[in-house]
Design a protein around this nucleic acid. Structure first.
Lengths: 198, 198
DNA sequence: TAGAAATAAGAACAATTGTTCAATTCCTGA
DNA sequence: TCAGGAATTGAACAATTGTTCTTATTTCTA
């Protein structure tokens, strides 16, 4: 006997992405087998290869689509006509909201870079650098306007992004602080770190 | 009687740790085979099991010894009689120096937590929390002294550590900035972030 | 409603995995 | 010099890996 129920191409495709994302985030790319993914989808392992040429493509697909979503969402949200201070606050709040809503995708995008082939790594790095560039541009604008006191915008960019992304390692929705409170706290730290007067 | 000289035990043991650390950091715990480690050491795979009961123990050993070294080094360096501001600067410079000198150990300690058994995970987490506690204590002291303006010392602790540790993802010894310059830049950001007046 | 295209099953492949263990080599202490 | 223990080898184990392929079934189109 072959299949037990009907054909679900439109459903199976996304399901595979979701299952892969969940499992890669939980156990790591190398520790997850194609059979585990297939089981979670509710399908036999052979069927996966109707949707992806191989395991590596599954990984790089998750990473690039995450980063592309991130870039698109920020470009939509950014009001480039605002003051640098306003844009920085917007960026801060956007970044931690976007990231805390996608812990699995974020985890994979940071942790599995070493499992990418060189070409795929380069593709992903280009996207990441574009995002970092968006923040750095704001910091440079703030320095030009005389509002920010930043010794080195590149280092400040890396420092701020690391600080914000670190939220994912500890924040829990049912913890001591609400997300809104945490957002305010992080914005306070970012504002201070760029020397922005109150 | 155990052999004392001419024996390779004293050499092979550490060599295995080094090889495992290097390989785990490069490719990830799950992606590294015991045979790869053995090859790097220059030994057959069976010999590894004279030094570790299994692969998992190799991993948790690397993590705990890294964190214990970190704690011991900081406790030695911390001058608890100093002002909170002085201690925070000391912590900042210490943290990024210690971490940039051990990129592989740091990488593993952050990335491979999900590959630990629950008991081993708890052991490692206790050590990490002790280190975070050391920073938080300084922040609380600074608030008590009236020098720091921090809304939430716990969140500030996590934010600062994430910012500092993020250095490892981009700093290169032969890059645009010297390590001393980077240290100064990070201390500037940390100082600002806790609202410390110049 | 017939037939083409899409989708899935399930078996098969060679390669690799962590771990065990008897046999062997080597070194030390007496 | 030699006995005995430590260190290492090398083969073996069953289990699991990513991927391919043929076959069966379902869905879509005309």
């Amino acid at each position: 006997m072959a299949r037990t129920s009907g054909s679900h191409a439109k459903i199976t495709g996304p399901k595979i992405q979701e299952a892969a994302q969940k499992q890669f985030a939980r156990h790591g790319y190398a520790a997850v087998s194609m059979r585990q993914i297939a089981t979670e989808v509710g399908v036999q392992v052979g069927a996966l290869y109707n949707y992806t040429p191989d395991k590596q493509t599954l990984l790089v697909g998750l990473m690039t689509s995450h980063l592309e979503e991130l870039l698109a969402a920020w470009e939509q949200e950014d009001d480039a006509r605002g003051t640098a201070a306003a844009r920085l606050e917007q960026f801060t709040r956007f970044h931690i909201r976007f990231h805390k809503e996608r812990p699995d995708a974020v985890f994979i995008a940071y942790m599995e870079l070493r499992n990418l082939t060189p070409e795929n790594f380069e593709t992903v790095e280009v996207l990441r650098r574009r995002y970092e560039g968006a923040l750095q541009e704001i910091l440079q604008a703030g320095v030009a306007e005389g509002d920010f006191a930043i010794a080195d915008t590149k280092v400040a960019t890396m420092g701020i992004i690391a600080m914000l992304t670190g939220l994912n390692t500890w924040f829990r929705e049912d913890g001591r602080l609400s997300f809104a409170e945490v957002q305010d706290l992080y914005w306070g730290m970012v504002r201070n770190s760029v020397g922005l007067a109150r």
